[in-house]
C-alpha cells in the first residue's frame, strides 16, 4: 500500500508541473498541445548538460541533477519560443503548431541525442544514462498511518515542484502579471484598452509553459526511467493537458487530478503485482490513467469553462 502512495506521488508531481505550464499558456489565450514536445526538448537539454558534467562532478553527484533541472527549465523555455512565435507573431493555427512542435521534438531530440553520443563517446546510442534522484523520508509525517506513505522515500524534485506550484499559484492569482495574463485569455481587447501588452504577456506565458514542462520532463527522466531517450516521454504531456482540463484550468484542482492519475497508475501496477499476473498483463493496468481520462471526459466536459479567448488569434483591429 505504501508503495502505491510513494510511486503515485512521484509520478503526480512532474505531471503537475507540466500541467501548470499548460495552464499558464492557455490562461493567457494560447492553446497548448505542445506540452509533450516542450517536456521532451527540455529534458533533452537537461540530460545533455548532465552527461557533460557527470565526468567532472562524479556519476552519483546530486548537484548535477539540480543543474540539469535548471538546464531543462531554460531549454524548455527556449524551445517554446518556437510555439510562441508561430502562434503570436505569425498567427498560425495554435492546434497545428502544437502538434508540429511535438513531432519535431521527438525527431529533433532523437537526432541530437545520437549525434551528441557519437561526439562524446563514439557510439551513436540514442540514450543518455542518468541515474536516479535521491530520496528523502520526512520524519514524523511519514509515521502517520496510511497517508504517511506520501511522505516516505520522496524524490528531492518533489519538494522543488511543490515550491514551484505554490509560486505559480501566487504569480497567477495575486500579482499584476497574473491578473493581466488571465485577462488576456478571457478578453484580450480589454487588456489592450487598459494599456496592457497582449502579445508580450502571451509570449512570456508560453515560454514559462515550456520551461515548466522541461522541468517535468527531466524529473521523469531522473525517476521512472533513469535515462533520457526520446522514447521515455510517451504521452505524459497529453496526460498533463487532460489533468489541466479536468482541473478546469485552475492550479489547485489540477493538482488533485494529477495525484489521482498518479495513484491510478501506481495502484494499477501494484494490483497487477499482487494478483501475481504475468508481466504482459501489467500493460493493461498501465492503461488505467488513460481509461480513467476517457471516463472523466464524459462527466466533466460539460461543466468546464476554458478561457474564453483561448485559441483565437488576437487582432487589434477587430471590434
Amino acid at each position: 500500500m505504501e508503495k502505491v502512495f510513494i510511486d503515485g506521488l512521484s509520478f503526480a508531481m512532474p505531471l503537475l508541473v507540466m500541467a501548470i505550464g499548460a495552464i499558464y499558456s492557455e490562461k493567457s489565450g494560447i492553446t497548448n498541445l505542445a506540452v509533450e514536445g516542450f517536456q521532451g526538448f527540455g529534458a533533452f537539454v537537461g540530460a545533455l548538460v548532465a552527461v557533460i558534467l557527470m565526468p567532472t562532478l562524479g556519476d552519483g553527484s546530486q548537484t548535477v541533477i539540480y543543474i540539469a533541472m535548471v538546464a531543462a527549465f531554460i531549454g524548455g523555455g527556449i524551445y517554446a519560443i518556437l510555439h510562441a512565435l508561430l502562434c503570436i507573431n505569425f498567427r498560425a493555427n495554435q492546434t497545428i503548431s502544437g502538434v508540429v512542435i511535438n513531432i519535431l521534438g521527438t525527431a529533433l531530440t532523437a537526432f541530437l541525442t545520437s549525434t551528441a553520443n557519437k561526439i562524446m563517446n563514439g557510439d551513436s546510442s540514442n540514450k543518455f544514462i542518468l541515474g536516479v534522484c535521491d530520496r528523502f523520508t520526512i520524519p514524523g509525517l511519514s509515521q502517520i498511518p496510511v497517508i504517511g506513505g506520501f511522505f516516505k522515500n520522496m524524490y528531492a524534485f518533489e519538494f522543488i515542484i511543490a515550491g514551484i506550484a505554490v509560486a505559480a499559484w501566487y504569480l497567477m492569482y495575486k500579482t499584476r502579471f497574473g491578473m493581466h495574463l488571465r485577462a488576456c485569455g478571457e478578453n484580450p481587447q480589454a487588456v489592450d484598452a487598459a494599456g496592457g501588452n497582449v502579445a508580450r504577456t502571451r509570449f512570456i506565458a508560453v515560454m514559462l509553459s515550456g520551461a515548466l514542462s522541461g522541468v517535468g520532463g527531466i524529473c521523469f527522466a531522473y525517476s521512472i526511467s533513469a535515462n533520457f531517450s526520446p522514447s521515455i516521454y510517451m504521452g505524459y504531456g497529453y496526460l498533463a493537458i487532460s489533468a489541466m482540463i479536468f482541473g478546469n484550468w485552475n492550479i489547485l484542482p489540477t493538482a488533485a487530478v494529477c495525484l489521482f492519475f498518479g495513484l491510478a497508475k501506481s495502484g494499477g501496477y501494484q494490483l497487477c503485482l499482487n494478483m501475481g499476473l504475468p508481466s504482459n498483463y501489467s500493460d493493461i493496468f498501465m492503461m488505467l490513467p488513460y481509461v480513467l481520462t476517457l471516463i472523466l471526459l464524459v462527466f466533466f466536459s460539460k461543466k468546464n469553462h476554458p478561457p474564453k479567448a483561448v485559441g483565437e488569434v488576437y487582432d487589434k483591429g477587430k471590434r
Binding site: 501566487y170 500579482t175 499584476r176 485577462a183 480589454a190 489592450d192 487598459a194 494599456g195 469553462h305
Partner: peptide, 29 residues
C-alpha cells in the same frame, strides 16, 4: 471591453492595479 469572469473592481483597476507587498517582500495586487 470587460473581462467577464473578473469582478467589477478587477476590471476597473486592470492595468493600474494598486500594489502592496505581502510579508513585506512579495509584490501583489
Amino acid at each position: 471591453k470587460l473581462v467577464d469572469n473578473y469582478t467589477v473592481a478587477e476590471n476597473i483597476v486592470l492595468g493600474m492595479e494598486p500594489k502592496k507587498r505581502a510579508l513585506g517582500i512579495f509584490p501583489m495586487v
